[in-house]
Design a protein around this nucleic acid. Structure first.
Lengths: 127, 127, 127, 127
DNA sequence: GTGGTCTAGACCACC
DNA sequence: GTGGTCTAGACCACG
């Protein structure tokens, strides 16, 4: 069963999108594998303290992307292969990195300063 | 007049918030100074391809924070001093860095890999 | 459920203000009581042929005044006590009366003529 | 020259509309007559403390209704006849009276109470 | 279904 | 031209 222990809710972006990205990042990290079972809508919504509809929306989008297989009466499972994983990896890793860099540069931070910032805060951030 | 040349619109967060943060990051970068003139709501909205009200919302929030001075019939101007700038800097730098790190860790990226990614993409990102 | 049967839309003042005043006048009239349920934003907006946001604005202002209690997923309800009712009564009765008198006097109508006009039209106006 | 001494600015309705109605009510009152001269845009705007454009807008609407005659280089003058006056009278007097009555009835005020209110406040209201 | 927010377009008052 | 407000429509999260 996929763990949501390290899920941290932020505000500013829709909850269903945060759930969706959390799962995609787990795929990139290799922590979420083919055939892994997802928690039920009901269970996850109670874990995260959100509405079941919100979880449903995230699952639905992942299913539309072909990353999740749902069947009534049984747990949804991940439906991955090397191609999909590679696609998600490229998409997320590059996009996130580029966003970081753009943000830092907007603040006038140099490459060296950015690296220093990451080193300084790396071990403080809650996992 | 404050330049929005390097503004890049993303999705996932409200447009008015992206505008607000772009300005705050310019303050941190030292590219936006006290008494600098802001583009009018109409001009900026047409530059960014959004509704004037969306710009208005960003400006209004900055005015509520005391970072902008508005008077009808004249251009809005920045209203900064050392204290305000330092406050914005601390707020943004930490928040952005922590977000980056959390995202990276969710993707199973180590500190060393994160630094490598930044080095690799730093010069590719449009300024 | 509070009735809006006798609501008549005019132009010249913002719709959200007309809705707000209609409710306040119902409070003064004793037709709207503590714990009465308000129609939902969507229902009322469709009844009046306006946008749900316009209703939302009126409700929000009433909530800010403490006259309405709202919670997502449930109907909004009136939140009244004797003090609030008396405050609204004094505010509205005087303000409306003074406006009437100023208008009439601008038109050169004497007190006697004004009373005659009211007597003449009183029973013609739709309730 | 038409006097604006008793003009009282309210909020909630556009200023240009208040000016327009003030003039129409003066017509109804018989205080404004055919061929009377209107103050210039510039003079009236400074008297009322508003923008010349706002006065211009009111004058323009009155001109469109045929109640005002404008000619460059000379003062605008009222352009009235019995028909127009009667039309304005019916329009304003009836509309205002009906509005008053509807407002009062919404507040649960009886005809007798309404008359009492008017008698009570009549002499208090600034002319 | 409920309340709340974000974006959009038109209008008002001012310079 | 400027800043500000009102109305409108779509979307989000919740019950």
């Amino acid at each position: 069963m996929i763990s949501f222990d390290s899920f941290v809710m932020e505000d500013g972006s829709p909850i269903y999108m945060q759930i969706l990205l959390y799962i995609k990042r787990g795929i990139v990290a290799g922590k979420i594998l083919h055939d892994d079972e997802l928690p039920s809508r009901r269970l996850l919504s109670s874990l995260l303290g959100v509405n079941p509809n919100t979880v449903q929306k995230a699952y639905k989008l992942l299913e539309d992307e072909g990353l999740i297989r749902s069947q009534t009466g049984a747990a949804s499972t991940m439906c991955l292969d090397e191609n999909k994983i590679e696609f998600v990896r490229r998409d997320l890793l590059e996009r996130d990195t580029r966003n970081v860099i753009r943000t830092m540069r907007q603040m006038g931070v140099t490459q060296e300063q950015a690296i220093r910032l990451i080193e300084r805060f790396w071990n403080e951030v809650e996992s």
